[in-house]
Write a protein that binds this DNA or RNA. Structure first.
Lengths: 206, 206
DNA sequence: TGTACATCAGTGAACGCGCGTTCACTGATGTAC
DNA sequence: TGTACATCAGTGAACGCGCGTTCACTGATGTAC
């Protein structure tokens, strides 16, 4: 809307599909998943409430597209943290965890949409692919740590993959729920160190 | 309702408050939090849809009462697992984690109500007390493990408490979301061993 | 280059639905005397 | 022990609301010739 203030009001939007995904994210961020409505998204995009149906069919279709974008963004958060971290495998894994938590904090409702709710169509090929890419990157990071630590047993590695994901996921979920009190008072840098310490507790076989 | 099939239909219910909490749990289990409605609960309890207001005011009041019951039940699951486990501190902590996961699997919607949603009134004294009791028990279990491992630094212990909770919480959340594929095919006993192995990965300083 | 026409994207009014809330009521209970 | 009355719990009709869906429509676009 405010992107094109000077453009005349045209009958055809031009790129409504993308605009709707963008509006849907804003709607989700502001009202949460429980209050999310197709009408609200259409209103936010400045379009009649029946318009989204032409692009997404129903709410599920729109939320599916939004969740797909979410997984891509999750990977971007991880990449950013890892680029700023030391190169050794454990530090890289901790950075991946920090990225996971940072993503959840930046987009809590999107995080819930992707991992907790059942509203997107998780059988959708694009959504599947985005989710699997994110998962595969995590698996690679964990395998690198396991290899450096000399762990070869496949069962142990798989348990470690699950434990790593669970730790990062649980930490992210508790943080956005405001449940970890001893993080609240801390300044940004201190907070970050505490999160790293928590992740390191569970990730590293010291 | 089916508890008292022979009782005549009385104008006054007698114990409607408790019956509504019970119905609310069934409603939550069947329809999930997003579809949860006061009218549905009242119908399920066999009472007019305006009746709940006399006991709970609004939906928040009812969900707050339900979440309180949830924390008490969570503790019961933990107790049951720990009673069946070996007495050493690490095994007891793993058992606590298994109890957490078992609770989430038995009551997924209640789990979300308690930890993910913002719909109950978390400032409610009874709910606060129930949640703090559950948390205190977790802290005690972790401190026992830390003491046995000779960890004395308070910061390290606090990080370990958060890591333990995050691991159990994340594992529970991923399991009920059906995200941990390598648990799917396993039989009950094998499944339990895999969950224990995952928990042990993050909990123990071996 | 110009015209006709099919297709597509978006409109806006109308629909039925379930929701929470309100309100005057009625039946049951308990307490004062 | 009996009566009157206040209080409380539950009823059921009515309300306005926002929702998703439907549908006949209209304006724009692109393609065939």
């Amino acid at each position: 809307m405010s992107d094109e203030p000077a453009s005349p009001r045209r009958y055809h939007h031009g790129n409504l599909r993308e605009a709707l995904v963008h509006s849907a994210e804003a709607e989700l961020q502001e009202h949460g998943l429980e209050q999310f409505s197709l009408r609200g998204v259409a209103k936010r995009a400045g379009v009649s409430h029946a318009a989204p149906a032409h692009h997404f069919g129903d709410t599920t279709g729109l939320l599916t597209a939004l969740a797909t974008v979410g997984f891509e963004r999750l990977v971007a958060f991880k990449d950013r943290e890892q680029a700023a971290a030391v190169a050794d495998s454990v530090s890289q894994l901790v950075a991946a965890g920090l990225g996971y938590v940072a993503f959840a904090e930046a987009h809590p409702a999107l995080f819930h949409l992707m991992f907790t709710s059942r509203r997107p169509d998780f059988a959708d090929p694009a959504l599947c692919a985005a989710g699997e890419t994110a998962y595969r990157l995590l698996v690679e990071d964990v395998r690198r740590v396991a290899a450096d630590a000399g762990i070869e047993d496949e069962g142990a590695v798989e348990a470690r993959i699950a434990a790593t994901w669970a730790l990062a996921h649980g930490l992210a979920d508790l943080v956005i729920a405001g449940r970890l009190r001893h993080l609240d008072g801390a300044a940004a840098k201190d907070r970050r160190q505490r999160l790293s310490a928590i992740l390191l507790c569970g990730l590293a076989k010291l």
